[in-house]
């Protein structure tokens, strides 16, 4: 009864066992139940999504001010005008994101490492890093930005640029490095001391233990919060517009200023969202793959 010879070996998901194994009737019945359950789950999900979307749609479109709102925020004419301008501005945001992101990761890591240094010799370095993080994490980004963008040119230093994009980027790096340093430090501290002990016992120096054993584990663990900061940075790149650089938000603002229609802002917002989603999916995929490689599976 358990091994049903009449059932042909046709299930593609079965492991290729070489022992002439034939799935039993019990297994086929169980798999049929699983499939039925999956189908039901999908049906329920679809139905509830439909209802939710329907209710939201009706609630919004039946609001008293809806025609006016639609005209002001979702105007196809202005969207068409705004999109190329916004995309041109977005290119600046992307460049800022990539350059600042790379610098922030490097500085953040250096700050975190400086804070984990032991020994009295390193006290000044440690204190400096701690003070830096304390200060720049507490300072509102907008104030940091104003200070750098308008304060540095006011000094009239020789050979220092007045380019608002570069200065704005520098302000972003200053602030975000402090955040990212704390993320890295938290990651480093979650690696169990026994890992360090094992590395040192093999004769690795403190720096080598950090480089080859602690950091690889720490960085993997903090990928999700790092991504969080990166997405946040991406949005904050828009703040360089206060220095006069035309990014996606500023491009939208210019059109809105002429037309008194807010559609360009909606376009800019959607463009930003569209930019983060692939990034999030990509890091999800990377972390999932890492986890699959390292851990054994299980049903719970």
């Amino acid at each position: 009864m358990l091994d049903n010879p009449e059932v042909p070996h046709q299930d593609e998901t079965l492991p290729s066992a070489d022992d002439g194994y034939q799935p039993s009737a019990r297994r086929l019945e169980r798999e049929r139940l699983h499939r039925a359950r999956t189908r039901r789950a999908i049906a329920v999900a679809a139905a509830s999504t439909l209802v939710t979307v329907g209710v939201l749609y009706l609630a919004v479109t039946h609001a008293p001010g809806w025609p006016r709102t639609r005209e002001t925020f979702l105007n196809a004419h202005y969207a068409r005008i705004a999109l190329p301008q916004v995309l041109k501005g977005l290119w600046l945001n992307v460049r800022l994101l990539v350059c600042c992101g790379a610098l922030i990761l490097v500085f953040g890591m250096l700050l975190a490492l400086a804070r984990t240094l032991r020994g009295p010799v390193f006290f000044p370095l440690r204190a400096l890093a701690t003070a830096y993080v304390d200060f720049f994490r507490g300072l509102p980004l907008i104030i940091c930005l104003l200070g750098v963008v308008f304060g540095v040119p006011a000094l009239r230093l020789q050979g220092v640029t007045n380019n608002p994009v570069v200065l704005g980027g520098a302000a972003l790096v200053l602030t975000y490095s402090a955040y990212v340093a704390e993320v890295f430090r938290a990651g480093i501290e979650t690696v169990h001391p026994s890992q360090r002990a094992a590395a040192r016992s093999l004769g690795l120096t403190g720096a080598q233990a950090m480089r080859y054993v602690v950091l690889p584990q720490a960085v993997r663990r903090v990928v999700p919060p790092l991504l969080n900061d990166l997405v946040s940075l991406q949005k904050d790149t828009g703040l360089v517009s206060i220095a006069g650089a035309v990014d996606a938000v500023y491009a939208a603002q210019i059109i809105t200023g002429e037309s008194f229609n807010y559609t360009p802002y909606v376009v800019a917002g959607l463009v930003f969202v569209a930019l983060t989603i692939p990034m999030t999916r990509f890091t999800d995929w990377v972390t999932a793959r890492m986890n699959r490689r390292q851990s054994q599976g299980g049903a719970v």
């Binding site: 799935p23 039993s24 019990r26 297994r27 299980g298 049903a299 719970v300």
Partner: peptide, 13 residues
């Protein structure tokens, strides 16, 4: 682990 359902069995009961 199978007995405690921490693992799902492929076949049998």
């Amino acid at each position: 682990r199978c007995a405690n359902l921490l693992e799902e069995v492929d076949d049998g009961a």
